[in-house]
Design a protein around this nucleic acid. Structure first.
Lengths: 110, 110
DNA sequence: GTATCATATGAACAAATGAACATATGTTAT
DNA sequence: ATAACATATGTTCATTTGTTCATATGATAC
């Protein structure tokens, strides 16, 4: 494999690439969407805020599993939480979540 | 952990959830975006179509690694390819890619 | 204080994943 | 046919990831 020439192409494209650090952050964000449990949680929160055990009941999974995933979603700033007594309610953090998932749905519906 | 009541909530939310199969497909789509090598490839293709070895050179990775990733991107229908002699050119398949990545970028820039 | 409920966290393990290496396939030119 | 190049694929290996289990924290009621 002796590589034909790409000098022009690389000059064009390399200049437009964001920093490695930004692209890494971006891929980390998408990998948070890349799990069906987390997608289900986000979709559930489209409707209304919910407490941890309600989500667990809805998805028929353990409270621990849900809590671990909510931690990831929180760190990615995709959900927020508020405490009310013993109960912690989670809600969608912003509308990027909706539009990203919406675009994804459009893509697979083709 | 003795679970307080959620019957109303679950009735509301459960009805709005897509099928498990759809949500799994959706999460699989996002997990394709969830790797920095693949994000870099997609970003490069924003500018212009490129052949495999040009991408490898741009990202300073082996041709094999790039080809494996392109296979995943092809199966997810995020890129298309056309052959011209020995060379295979890859290009963005559609504009969902741009808008998904764009929304992701907006989200992390806050 | 103790008891109970709701949530969070740490450790352990199985399953999935990305990259490297070697090799195979496909295309062109001679 | 052979040689050379571009891409694809199979295998191996190290790392990451999602879940379960056991335990810890936080909050309310008594």
């Amino acid at each position: 494999m002796k590589n034909h020439d790409h000098s022009e192409i690389l000059k064009d494209v390399a200049g437009q690439m964001p920093l490695d650090e930004e692209l890494a952050e971006l891929s980390e964000l998408f990998s948070v969407f890349g799990d069906s449990t987390r997608i289900k949680i986000l979709w559930a929160l489209f409707e209304r805020e919910m407490c941890v055990c309600a989500i667990a009941e809805l998805l028929k999974m353990t409270q621990s599993a849900i809590s671990h995933q909510l931690k990831l979603l929180r760190h990615a700033k995709l959900v927020g939480s508020r405490r009310e007594g013993k109960t912690v309610y989670y809600y969608l953090a912003d509308d990027h979540v909706r539009s990203i998932i919406g675009q994804g749905m459009e893509h697979i519906s083709e």
